[in-house]
Lab assay of single mutants.
Amino acid sequence: MLDDRARMEAAKKEKVEQILAEFQLQEEDLKKVMRRMQKEMDRGLRLETHEEASVKMLPTYVRSTPEGSEVGDFLSLDLGGTNFRVMLVKVGEGEEGQWSVKTKHQMYSIPEDAMTGTAEMLFDYISECISDFLDKHQMKHKKLPLGFTFSFPVRHEDIDKGILLNWTKGFKASGAEGNNVVGLLRDAIKRRGDFEMDVVAMVNDTVATMISCYYEDHQCEVGMIVGTGCNACYMEEMQNVELVEGDEGRMCVNTEWGAFGDSGELDEFLLEYDRLVDESSANPGQQLYEKLIGGKYMGELVRLVLLRLVDENLLFHGEASEQLRTRGAFETRFVSQVESDTGDRKQIYNILSTLGLRPSTTDCDIVRRACESVSTRAAHMCSAGLAGVINRMRESRSEDVMRITVGVDGSVYKLHPSFKERFHASVRRLTPSCEITFIESEEGSGRGAALVSAVACKKACMLGQ
């Protein structure tokens, strides 16, 4: 009897593995994704193909990295998701002549009506938060230079001027797309009239992360975010950046690689679950690469896999709870928690219980395998993109072996128990001629924006502006 049951459990697990095998990517698959990513990057950089390229390769006008001589107080704003952060950054000489960066910050959550109302409502709310922060720190009387981390696709015309191309991540505030974001912020500050600010720089969160990590390690020339969304930036040779005049030196390019796949480059790798996630998203047909990796989508992918296993009578005796059938019910943090389970399955059992399920031991094991399959594919897909960037940098610099540091931020990278190990191992397999160091950014977005502002202020002083 026991043997029969054991055989049935083994057969069930084997069927589960057959279904989950769809998520496995072979090294040849990853090399294919990497080569296609490089081709799209090239198209994004070139003037004649930029418009139709899915990977936009947006110039950021960040050319210099901090040298350690900029000092002063800077205000930093960070808008990239449902939370908005205001930070005071003091850049100065530390002990023994070292450079020191001290920060104080406060988080504000953005109400739904500000995210989806008008641009005026959104930026009025942001300036209200700045006003509140300055009151708390008794700094209303000071006109501070301000660095703005704005983590949406922007076409820069200068370091302090950028046109919002399109909202992502659930934002829909009308009247912002096609307009200068810094102008919208300046107008809102003017409307309030109770404080003055000098907006000197606007950067993407990947750029802010790279600059913040450069402060720790001067070989950091790539910034990457794996959180709600997924994106990367890197220092490109100016001669390859056709959208900006000049051939000397390097400029940081914001790849906006989340949109890779929007022209069909990933079609052969998309599964039924991916198509369902895409169809029910706020932007169907867009940001397809990001939807395979980002935390906004990972939990939902797992939920759809679990429903398939229920329908195949391989999980929960073929019956799903009402909660499990509800879109968004299986949160991405559950994926991390399930994979963090120590082996007694308590954590998995508790999560499934909150979803109205009474799982068996085998159910718990199957749910864990589903989570591992989805998150491992995410790590491997992400590795193909980064390997594409790094191999490109090595080739354009004609280096036999390139040493490089990548600064990384984002909740999936930082909080998932195995993502970074799987990701690092896969990147290294795909970049055999590179020695890569990964560092995690601390308060990256805010500190990085302030350091970019410090560079901009120093330049302005040198130019006598």
Rank of each mutant, 00 (worst) to 15 (best):
R191M: 08
L357A: 01
M87W: 05
S398F: 05
A259D: 10
A460W: 09
E395I: 09
I110Q: 15
Q323E: 11
N240T: 01
G68Y: 03
R403M: 10
C461A: 10
F334L: 15
Y108K: 02
E319I: 13
V389F: 04
F330D: 01
R422E: 14
L144C: 13
R422I: 12
N254Y: 05
K161I: 15
T60K: 00
R422G: 12
A449H: 09
S100G: 05
R368G: 03
T255R: 00
L292K: 07
D363K: 00
S433Q: 05
D344M: 05
A232G: 02
Q347R: 04
R36M: 06
S418R: 12
A456S: 09
P284F: 14
M381P: 00
F74W: 03
L357M: 02
D4S: 14
E9R: 10
V408K: 00
L357W: 03
M139N: 03
Y273C: 05
T354D: 07
L451T: 12
M121Y: 01
H416D: 09
S445K: 07
D344E: 07
I351H: 02
V427F: 08
K32Y: 02
V455Y: 05
L324E: 00
P111W: 08
G388P: 07
Q347A: 10
E96T: 10
T405H: 03
T209G: 01
G170D: 14
M238K: 00
D160W: 02
T326N: 14
Q347E: 07
S151D: 14
D132L: 05
R345M: 03
S174W: 06
I366Y: 05
A173N: 05
V241Y: 01
V203Y: 00
T255M: 15
G92F: 08
Y108V: 04
I211F: 00
K143C: 07
E93H: 11
T437S: 08
E177S: 13
L276M: 06
S127G: 12
P111L: 07
E51L: 10
T49G: 09
G170E: 12
A173C: 05
T326F: 10
K13P: 15
S340D: 05
E96D: 14
L88E: 02
L122T: 07
L301E: 01
T49Q: 14
P145I: 00
A450C: 13
A201W: 01
N313K: 08
L79F: 13
